[in-house]
Nucleic acid binder design. Structure first.
Lengths: 225, 225
DNA sequence: GTCTGTTTGAAACATACGTTTGACGCCGTT
DNA sequence: AACGGCGTCAAACGTATGTTTCAAACAGAC
């Protein structure tokens, strides 16, 4: 067995268990048991549990951010100066995710859930790590979004981006959805691609909704359609 | 000091700490320290940490579900047989939440974050508790949604509801946004009402988006607008 | 005032965690 | 054949957790 075999077995087991149970709720002993390696191997190869968490993310995120950069390059080249549309930008992102070379068919679902957990569980070290390591593609995506929705005020755009992020991360990170994806609980086939093809129109429509009708929050009556 | 004083002090401290740090990451010792009560008081009054978590939810959710029922009653009465529109249904929900008698101004934000955590952290016992205790108003909301979007297929509606839930729970539960809400980090005032007034149009537009344009997931080219 | 059931207090319990240790086996190099 | 670095292993470390214990303090009823 090569030396890196243990490292990969740990990463595989950790990725799956973190996605299923969250970070704090997954112990190193669970991971090493599932990976069939010794408990000390984690601290030997990664240094600490937090560093292992970072490694799990880096294994997916580093090649993904490269793929995303080239997708954005291609998109902007195709648009010849004109800013890409919202739909194009969203599709570039989701297609990059879907096209990622995956270790197995559930790779993306698992990783989407991990991303959701990263945002939701207040693991300070993880947020800091992700923001430091991958600020560049993230900032570029934000810039594209801004150029694609010039009609929105900065505040409106800020909140709607938050909503998009929420719909995406939460959907992928909700255990129900994950279970559906993984074991096809619904009759229909439920691939990540299919979810994405449902999600993108939802997001685009919400993002381009008419001016937020600021219904006075204290009014007694609700406006009728 | 009355007997229930300790109980309420524990609930207050637990609610706040759970919202800040999550359930697993919050120890009983943190809670009892913040509440200035003895460690054993939690197990004496609630029986276990899990039961404490349930009690935190029940303290908010029980009066809220009652408020929501009357709001739905009023809405349906006003519509005289016609099914309420999507906007009306969403507003009835958010207004019920906003109108809840709160212990303090940040009550709703905190509780929204707790709800998001409940869905996200795979705490099996919590999900089971919530589904058992509050299935009735939840089911009623789902029925109203169904009647308000008859054009959607069941599968489309299922996923779009998931998206709505995600945008809402995630927005309210993201720690960044929470921090902004709590201490007005942004220049503009950011109340829960204001967020809701931005969120509802986003959700309604997404929910009523045109038929999901099922772009073939494997196609090389992206459709252009 | 005394008694009875309820609530608090400090301390201990058993368990699980992340991490560290030191011995052991392996393998390529000298 | 002896060495030395590397990876593995079982075992232990110190700490933190949820929970339990039992005596003391308190309340209201008689």
């Amino acid at each position: 067995m090569a030396q890196s075999d243990t490292v990969d077995k740990i990463l595989d087991a950790a990725e799956e268990l973190f996605a299923e149970r969250g970070f704090s709720e997954t112990s190193l002993r669970m991971i090493t048991s599932k990976a069939n390696v010794n408990l000390a191997a984690v601290n030997y190869h990664f240094g600490s549990k937090n560093a292992l968490i970072h490694a799990v993310f880096a294994r997916f995120l580093t090649p993904f951010s490269a793929t995303l950069e080239t997708a954005f390059d291609a998109l902007e080249a195709r648009c010849e100066g004109k800013p890409p549309t919202l739909n194009q930008t969203l599709w570039a992102l989701t297609e990059s995710a879907v096209r990622m070379p995956q270790r197995n068919e559930k790779g993306i679902s698992i990783f989407m859930r991990l991303l959701g957990l990263a945002y939701t569980q207040s693991q300070g070290h993880l947020r800091k790590f992700l923001e430091q390591e991958y600020s560049e593609p993230f900032g570029r995506f934000m810039r594209l979004l801004k150029e694609a929705t010039p009609q929105l005020s900065a505040v409106d755009r800020y909140w709607r981006i938050q909503f998009m992020l929420g719909a995406t991360a939460f959907t992928m990170s909700s255990s129900d959805a994950l279970r559906d994806i993984l074991q096809n609980k619904l009759g229909v086939e439920t691939t990540v691609q299919e979810i994405a093809s449902r999600l993108v129109p939802f997001l685009a429509a919400g993002m381009q909704a008419e001016d937020a009708m600021l219904v006075p929050p204290q009014s007694e009556k609700v406006s009728v359609a």
